[in-house]
Design a protein around this nucleic acid. Sequence first.
DNA 1: AACAATGTCGAGTGGATTACTCGGGTTTGA
DNA 2: TCAAACCCGAGTAATCCACTCGACATTGTT
Lengths: 154, 154
Amino acid sequence: MRLSTKGRYGMRAMLALARRYGEGPVPLKEIAEGEGLSEAYLEQLISELRKAGLVRSVRGAQGGYFLGREPATITAGDIIRVLEGPIGPVQCVVEIPGGEVCDCAEYCVERILWERLRDSIVQVLDGITLADLLIEERKLAPANSGLERGCQQN
Amino acid sequence: MRLSTKGRYGMRAMLALARRYGEGPVPLKEIAEGEGLSEAYLEQLISELRKAGLVRSVRGAQGGYFLGREPATITAGDIIRVLEGPIGPVQCVVEIPGGEVCDCAEYCVERILWERLRDSIVQVLDGITLADLLIEERKLAPANSGLERGCQQN
DNA sequence: AACAATGTCGAGTGGATTACTCGGGTTTGA
DNA sequence: TCAAACCCGAGTAATCCACTCGACATTGTT
């Protein structure tokens, strides 16, 4: 039940972009260096986020990436779904836009458990936006606001 | 963010044992056949559950496995922890019996998100016992109580 | 026009993990 | 004594993860 690096790195990259929302495009190199991530790998992730519309890009010199929407309208769930796929502890109860997967839904008790778990995960993830996290961040360590690099372990 | 087969199969096996709680040892073969699982693989899983005290065994002919405690005192969280390891979406906020792992806890916002997610998962998993699920099961399909095999997809 | 700084894309790869299987024990009731 | 069970450790094919690499396209600057 762990997130892969895609979800973790993606969240960090999005937070990095959120911190600089409104300042124009941020080059990949800066994000990668700031977060201590491989540029080539991060590119893959941010490419998926771009295709999903969560970030936008400007090509060429002085180009870079920026958030596709306001930080207050992007939830953790949006990011995780793009990078880790539909949310759900088992394939059977994964969020699918309309349509059940499991054909034993009638009599399967485990399903009840997994659905409750999924709902609770979704509720947390969809209940927190990038803007919320930025506010928390300011509360956390006002002194650290000039911090160069993010947490190297998440 | 998916459970592995260990957690899924383990939950099914424990539910199978819970259904027959008080009836003496159930041979592995019966559980495996009833749930449509490989006997050899299930043995590995149940062995871990046994070492953790969640199930007990009787060796020799007429032997088998049975729950180590009453179904009402075994939670889904107990089972998942044994088979999937400590609960937590990222290594950094995994449940460890006393002791932090992450050394940037002071200024890491992601951590707040992951902790909230972990707590919500733990709350669901620790809030449901095998006895609860048996009750739900009876509500679900009283007609199906003579069902031979469980859901083949979970 | 040339160049350098950027983003875009697809393929490849080593290592870890998963989901098993297999074979050889030991224990115990009939 | 035998067969039905549990016990244990090793092995393995397939998959997935976490990247790397190389070639190309776009654009501001000089």
